[in-house]
Simulated scan of single mutants.
Amino acid sequence: MTLEDLVRLRRARDLMDRDYSEPLDVPALARVALMSPGHFSRSFRAAFGETPYSYLMTRRIERAKALLRRGDLTVTEVCFAVGCTSLGSFSSRFTELVGESPSSYRARSHDDGAAIPACVAKIYTRPVRNGEARPDSPPLV
Rank of each mutant, 00 (worst) to 15 (best):
K65L: 06
P102L: 05
H110Y: 05
H110W: 01
M57I: 04
V120T: 05
S92Y: 12
R93N: 04
G88E: 13
V75W: 05
L97I: 09
G113F: 13
H39F: 10
R93H: 08
G71S: 09
R60K: 11
S104E: 13
S92K: 14
L73A: 10
G38L: 08
S101A: 13
S43E: 09
E100V: 09
G49W: 10
T85K: 14
Y105H: 08
S103G: 09
Y53K: 10
T76V: 11
Y105T: 01
Y124K: 03
T74V: 03
G38K: 12
T74D: 07
Y105E: 01
L68A: 01
K122I: 00
Y105L: 04
A107N: 13
V82P: 01
A46I: 05
R106I: 00
V75F: 08
A118I: 02
R70K: 11
I123N: 06
F44P: 10
R108I: 03
L73N: 09
S103R: 12
V82E: 02
S91P: 00
F48T: 01
Y53G: 14
G88Q: 13
Y55M: 08
K65S: 07
C119I: 00
T125K: 11
G113S: 13
T74A: 08
I116Q: 02
A64Y: 00
S103H: 08
G113A: 13
S101D: 07
T51P: 03
K65F: 00
V78I: 03
H39I: 00
L87S: 05
F90L: 09
L87E: 12
G49I: 02
D72E: 15
S41M: 05
V78Y: 00
R108A: 03
T51R: 14
R59C: 06
T85D: 07
A121K: 15
E100P: 05
L67Q: 08
R63T: 00
T95A: 15
T95Q: 13
R60L: 00
F90V: 05
P52C: 12
V78Q: 02
T95E: 13
I123H: 12
E62Q: 14
R42V: 04
T58K: 15
A46S: 15
L97Q: 07
C84E: 12
A121M: 10
G71T: 06
S103A: 15
Y53R: 13
D112N: 11
E50P: 08
T51F: 12
S41T: 11
A81W: 06
C79M: 07
C79W: 06
R45H: 15
P52L: 03
D72S: 15
H39E: 10
G83P: 07
E100W: 06
T125G: 06
G88K: 15
V78M: 02
C79A: 13
A47H: 04
R63Y: 00
A46C: 07
R59N: 04
P52Y: 01
P117K: 04
G99C: 09
R108L: 05
D111V: 14
A114N: 11
V75R: 05
E96S: 14
Y55D: 04
G113E: 12
T51V: 01
G99K: 07
R93I: 10
G83N: 03
F40Y: 14
A46H: 15
E100Q: 15
